[in-house]
Design a protein around this nucleic acid. Structure first.
Length: 692
DNA sequence: TTAGGGTTAG
């Protein structure tokens, strides 16, 4: 039978439609085509319209074939329309529908249709059972699984290995490997798949020793058997054992390579993963995704993006998993242009905008300061879930949009999306950035009372931040001391940074000294206390602290700001002279300083950590990384366009004031992300209302 | 039967 590509097949002529046999022949051709190409939906719709017109739907075989075509094309909505139009569907139709649902991941639908089928007393066959069992297995519905087991035994289908294998899988997916083993032991003619399913079942249940023992007993192994075991050792972090198996196995496929690759990725061994990746005889999209993700998870964003660029010149087409891996890299670097480029790429290559992609897009736009774009992706997302909504709340919080964050929360709960602990972190953060103490208290209570979520370290951290920022330092201090879990140093550091805002030197000393004992090597704590001393004019104590830092060999984490210009990300460190346009940048900065002073800029000398003379302090301040980035931004971007900066540390008082005045004098909005939140500078003021 | 993905306190 000739199989033309669907786009080349012309629709049947009216005379052929009058003849049921020739029409059925055409449908058969279509069935064959759709097996090869699932993109036959427009043609199928056309057929459907014509069959209805000619009354051919009355023919079971024609509608059945058509339904099967739809189901194979994964056009389940359309298949359902055909199905519902059939007065008394036979077993064959149910099977096609359930199979279609199962393969498109609509397992709930599959089970629903199965129960309709049972209610209508349609008997199942050896084709129905494995498919329904698979759905029960995916959804871990032991109730459905056990009922099926009973039915299988009653109807005698338990003699079929394929059905028994499905039962093993179902029990193991529900965590009952012992029940799976009982089924396995009763099978007389076990095939490799059945052995593999049992081994994989033990792995699923975390029973690694039984999996390993059974693997050794296998009379015959195929590649999958080896792959299952390699994956198992990777999952439990025993990468050396996995590697030995990989080296021992007689032949390897993509899955073997990728399983080992992801094993290295899981334990954070980027170098080993990359080495293996480079050695691979052939790579598929998964191989690329694993290594890109590995780089991102280990904060090696530039390398992740580099690999993504390399991928573009291969034949391997990136998919939704690839973009989900790449977008966080853009987000962390604040590379908005690149992130937007990825978004265009998604549309151009028709990459599926699933809930993962949308979440990653919202996060990227949010972290790159493009709040409107984040909101647009959120509004347009067809499927919304807890992660997506929590991400939107977090983004709004970061930008100081508390009310909007609360609205997302109300919306998600009203449509039945359950919040999780991260959702509340976002809400509390929103309250904290807006100084909404009472609302924050309300959410903190609500999470346990209404949603049964126990507050974690992060929530206490947020509460301490909320209270202490608002000036309730004592209450915050009490909360830290009365926490049911040992407070993480971050919680103390939060309190300390509020002491700086509210100039409470006494509490700051108490907290900081404790904190320094907890984390003697962490520079941030010394810096914070030193700044507090400097602000209070207590230079002597500041100097003593710096001496202590030096004695302990604590190195100050260098401030680093990045800015994206024409798709490239430029990084600046304080006092950096590495940039090719260094001379221009420093000239610009000096020129800016003198101009801004006439506009009311007074250097905030207490922000300078170094104990140098006043002029020296001013010099140090002037070359803070964010100022270098702003100067470079002014030099290299068009007049009037916003300047977007990402800083690794908190913005200091001086830079904050500086950027406010720059935004007014040069008529440039500056969107700066520090390690904590966003600052939108415009016309001389900042969105944080100087409360950060 | 076997490989890859999203949000989190300073």
């Amino acid at each position: 039978m000739a199989c033309l590509s669907p786009s080349m097949v012309s629709l049947p002529q009216p005379h052929s439609l009058e003849d049921p046999n020739s029409f059925q022949k055409l449908i058969e051709d279509w069935l064959f085509c759709s097996l090869k190409s699932p993109k036959t939906l427009p043609q199928l719709k056309s057929f459907h319209a014509q069959t209805i017109k000619t009354g051919l739907m009355a023919n079971d075989l024609v509608s059945g074939q058509l339904l099967l075509c739809c189901s194979l094309s994964y056009s389940m909505h359309y298949a359902r329309q055909i199905f519902d139009a059939i007065p008394r569907p036979k077993l064959f139709f149910y099977n096609a529908m359930i199979k279609g649902y199962s393969e498109t991941g609509a397992h709930h639908e599959a089970l629903r249709l199965y129960s309709i089928m049972r209610a209508r007393s349609v008997p199942c066959d050896s084709f129905t059972f494995p498919v329904v069992l698979r759905s029960a297995s995916t959804l871990a519905r032991i109730d459905v699984g056990e009922e099926l087991h009973g039915l299988v035994t009653k109807t005698g289908f338990d003699s079929k290995v394929i059905v028994q294998t499905a039962l093993i899988d179902m029990y193991c997916a529900c965590g009952l490997s012992d029940c799976g083993r009982l089924v396995f032991d009763r099978i007389r003619d076990r095939d490799v798949i059945c052995w593999n399913t049992m081994v994989a079942g033990y792995v699923k249940c975390g029973n690694f020793s039984s999996a390993s023992q059974l693997f050794d007993l296998m009379p015959k192994k195929n590649i999958s058997s080896w792959n299952t075991l390699i994956d198992m050792y990777c999952k439990c972090g025993n990468i050396d054992r996995a590697r030995r198996l990989f080296d021992e196995m007689p032949e390897r496929d993509f899955i073997s390579w990728n399983a080992l690759l992801s094993g290295y990725a899981k334990v954070g061994q980027c170098e080993a993963a990359r080495k293996l990746f480079d050695e691979m005889p052939q790579r598929n999209v998964v191989s690329w995704n694993v290594v890109i993700t590995c780089y991102v998870h280990n904060r090696r964003f530039a390398e992740a993006l580099e690999l993504f660029r390399m991928m573009q010149v291969t034949d391997i087409k990136p998919n939704e998993v690839t973009v989900v891996a790449v977008l966080p890299a853009c987000a962390h670097l604040g590379a908005l242009d690149l992130g937007q480029w990825v978004n265009t790429f998604i549309h151009r290559h028709q990459i599926k905008m699933d809930v993962y992609v949308n979440t990653a897009l919202i996060d990227m736009y949010g972290k790159c300061g493009a709040l409107e774009d984040a909101q647009r992706v959120f509004d347009e997302a067809i499927k919304k879930d807890t992660f997506l909504c929590s991400t939107m709340i977090e983004v709004l919080a970061m930008h100081g949009k508390a009310e909007a964050a609360f609205r997302v929360f109300t919306y998600m709960t009203s449509i039945g999306i359950k919040p999780n602990d991260v959702t509340f972190v976002g809400l509390l953060k929103a309250c904290s950035h807006a100084g909404l103490v009472d609302i924050g208290r309300k959410y903190f209570e609500m999470m346990t009372a209404e949603f049964g979520l126990m507050p974690k370290m992060e929530h206490f951290g947020c509460m301490v931040d909320l209270l202490s920022r608002a000036g309730l330092l004592e209450e915050a201090h009490e909360l830290v001391k009365s926490m049911p879990i040992e407070p993480h140093p971050i919680v103390w550091a939060t309190l300390l940074s509020s002491c700086r805002i509210h100039h409470n030197v006494k509490l700051a000393e108490e907290v900081a000294l404790q904190l320094i004992e907890l984390e003697p090597q962490s520079c941030e704590n010394y810096v914070l206390l030193s700044n507090i001393y400097s602000q209070a004019g207590r230079w002597h104590e500041a100097a003593k602290l710096r001496k202590k830092m030096k004695e302990r060999g604590v190195i100050k984490k260098p401030g680093c700001s990045s800015i994206e210009v024409n798709n490239d990300v430029y990084e600046f460190f304080a006092g950096d002279r590495d940039h090719p346009r260094c001379k221009e940048i420093y000239e610009m900065l000096n020129q800016m300083a003198s101009r801004l002073k006439t506009e009311g800029y007074v250097p905030q000398l207490s922000s300078a950590l170094h104990d140098v003379d006043l002029d020296g302090k001013e010099q140090t301040l002037m070359y803070h990384s964010e100022k270098l980035a702003v100067a470079f931004g002014l030099l290299s971007t068009q007049h009037g366009t916003p300047i977007r900066i990402v800083k690794n540390l908190r913005v200091c008082d001086d830079c904050h004031l500086f950027m406010k005045i720059v935004s007014k004098y040069y008529k440039r909005p500056i969107i700066a992300r520090d390690c904590n939140r966003f600052h939108h500078f415009s016309d001389g003021s900042c969105s944080c209302s100087d409360y950060w």
